[in-house]
Computed example of a mutant assay.
Amino acid sequence: MNTQNQQKDKSIADLRIDYSHASLSEADTATDPITQFGRWFDEAMHAEVPEANAMSLATVGSNGRPSSRIVLIKQFDERGFTWFTNFESRKGHDLEQHPYGALLFHWIALERQVRIEGRVEKVSDDESDAYFNSRPLQSRLGAIASAQSETIASRELLEAEYTKAERQFGDNPPRPKHWGGYRLFPDTVEFWQGRRSRLHDRILYTLDVNGGWLRQRLQP
Rank of each mutant, 00 (worst) to 15 (best):
D14C: 08
S56T: 15
T29C: 15
D18V: 10
I12D: 08
D18H: 09
S23L: 10
K8R: 09
T59N: 05
T35F: 05
A58Y: 00
K8D: 04
I12H: 15
D18G: 09
A13H: 13
A58R: 01
L15Q: 05
V49N: 01
A13M: 09
N63A: 08
S20N: 13
E48T: 12
P33V: 04
A52W: 01
P33N: 07
G38E: 02
E26I: 15
T29K: 06
Q4I: 07
A54I: 02
F41Q: 01
Q36V: 06
I34E: 01
D42W: 01
W40M: 03
S20C: 10
A47Y: 02
V60L: 13
I34N: 03
Q7I: 13
M55W: 05
A52P: 06
K10R: 14
A54C: 05
S25W: 03
M55C: 10
N53I: 11
A47E: 11
T31W: 07
R16G: 06
D18T: 13
G61Q: 03
S62R: 11
S68Y: 00
S23N: 11
D42G: 06
L15Y: 05
A22R: 07
S23Y: 01
E43F: 12
Q36R: 03
L24Y: 00
A47H: 04
A54H: 03
L57T: 10
A58S: 13
P50N: 06
N5S: 08
A54G: 05
T31S: 12
L24K: 00
T35Q: 06
S68Q: 06
Y19C: 15
A27P: 10
M45W: 12
D9R: 12
T31N: 12
I17E: 09
F37S: 00
I17N: 06
N53S: 12
I34C: 05
A54S: 11
A30Q: 09
A54Q: 03
Q6C: 08
T31E: 11
A52E: 02
A58Q: 04
S11N: 13
V60C: 10
D42F: 03
G38A: 13
A27I: 10
V60P: 02
A52Y: 00
P33I: 06
D18N: 15
F41I: 04
E43Y: 12
T59A: 08
A13F: 08
D32K: 05
F37M: 01
Q7T: 14
G61I: 04
D14K: 13
L24T: 00
S11K: 15
A44V: 11
V49S: 02
A30E: 08
D28H: 02
P50A: 07
T31Y: 07
N53L: 08
